[in-house]
Design a protein around this nucleic acid. Structure first.
Lengths: 163, 163
DNA sequence: AATAGTCAGTTGGAAAATCCAACTATGCTG
DNA sequence: CAGCATAGTTGGATTTTCCAACTGACTATT
């Protein structure tokens, strides 16, 4: 689990193996290699919500404690979370998001929005308000023209090869 | 695997079990219950890229054929993909994205962007151009004020409970 | 000082998911 | 019919995950 996987590895391969039957060279696969394991994104959700202690994260995600310990270790290794002592008397550590971890927040919000619209029945269980005062309805936009980005509004410039 | 999971189920639970030690009621968990299994998002990537045949998807993702068959079946059941005959003479089916599936494209693009910036070394293996002519650099924006949405620009209005 | 409680994990063994190569099934083509 | 292509399925090995119970460090209580 030597924090490699990147470039060609990554993929969906859970462990930290070496490329064998790789698949397409692709940063989606790379990203999933870092946060795509079971429970990782839910752990990150809790941390971003401010829940930073082991027991709470375990309770709120539903992950079993051994897997949670493994995920936290992995996310710290890969730079998504950092571990910090927040109390000395009983020496206690907490997990906080790194910059890279905070930059996953939009992805979680987009996933939440999709889940609200396509899987959750009834009203959204969790809701956010944006700084502008409106209830958050996120959408992906182009940084340049600020128009919405959808499946049909892009054209492929270059495609990663299939290693 | 009765396409339930939703509301409270979903979670990270891979099979289609019933809530036991659920975790927070949350549409992120719900969404991951639909597309969070290993390989699902890479399969969707291929389908959205236009690769719609079994063998190609297998090759381009690196998933083994049995798992791929299970994923395709699951994604069709859950309404992310649809199966359609594209040829009669040798009767052949292809997998195409549904509307819900196409609406996952922004999430894949956001993941790709994050991967480009935080895990892939070197230049992005895959690049898109937006309709506006600029190379795509996606960001999450508020549908109302069109400002960028980051980890710090939202406030929690309501939080799903921990079932 | 013993006892109990909290927190953050670790352990061992069972269950489930994934991997892999080989095989089947269907229809076409020569 | 033999050979090829596509789309899976099968069986068995390997890897992950689950689960409950346990450890270890420290604090609070009596």
């Amino acid at each position: 689990m030597t924090a490699d996987g990147q470039r060609t590895g990554g993929g969906q391969r859970t462990g930290g193996e070496r490329d064998k039957t790789v698949g397409r060279d692709c940063s989606i696969a790379g990203a999933l290699g870092v946060v795509g394991e079971k429970w990782s994104l839910l752990v990150l959700r809790e941390v971003l919500l401010g829940e930073r202690r082991f027991d709470q994260i375990a309770r709120n995600t539903g992950a079993s404690r051994d897997i949670l310990a493994a995920r936290l270790r992995g996310l710290v290794e890969r730079g998504v979370l950092a571990r910090r002592q927040y109390e000395q008397r009983p020496p206690r550590d907490e997990y906080v998001p790194t910059q890279a971890g905070r930059e996953l927040a939009p992805i979680l919000l987009a996933l939440m929005d999709w889940g609200d619209r396509h899987v959750t029945e009834g009203p959204p269980p969790t809701r956010f308000e944006h700084d502008c005062g409106a209830e958050l309805e996120p959408e992906l936009a182009c940084r340049h023209c600020h128009a919405r980005v959808t499946a049909g509004s892009t054209r492929l410039l270059r495609l990663g090869s299939v290693g």
